[in-house]
């Protein structure tokens, strides 16, 4: 079964991978907003806006 949630910016359906994890960043294909997985609860997935890239981010 395809996992989906709703974009908090444009309300579009956001498709999620089967192995989705909390703190994973996904993109809304409609409005291109980067979203972060906040909670996974009985297949209900809550998204919020992903944090912006910070100066010390990287590898």
């Amino acid at each position: 079964m395809q996992l989906t949630s709703q974009c908090i910016v444009c309300d579009a359906d956001v498709q999620l991978p089967k192995d989705v994890q909390i703190s994973e960043i996904v993109s809304c294909l409609e409005c291109k907003t980067n979203l972060v997985v906040e909670r996974i609860n009985e297949m209900k997935i809550a998204l919020s806006k992903a944090p912006a890239v910070e100066e010390d981010w990287g590898e």
């Binding site: 994890q21 909390i22 994973e24």
Partner: peptide, 27 residues
Amino acid sequence: LHSTIRADEKLLIEAAEKNKIRVSLID
């Protein structure tokens, strides 16, 4: 230890399962 989960971390989780070790994800 992570902050966001990237594709790299998901590969690590998968590799840990293959090597039969438990993973505790620490944000």
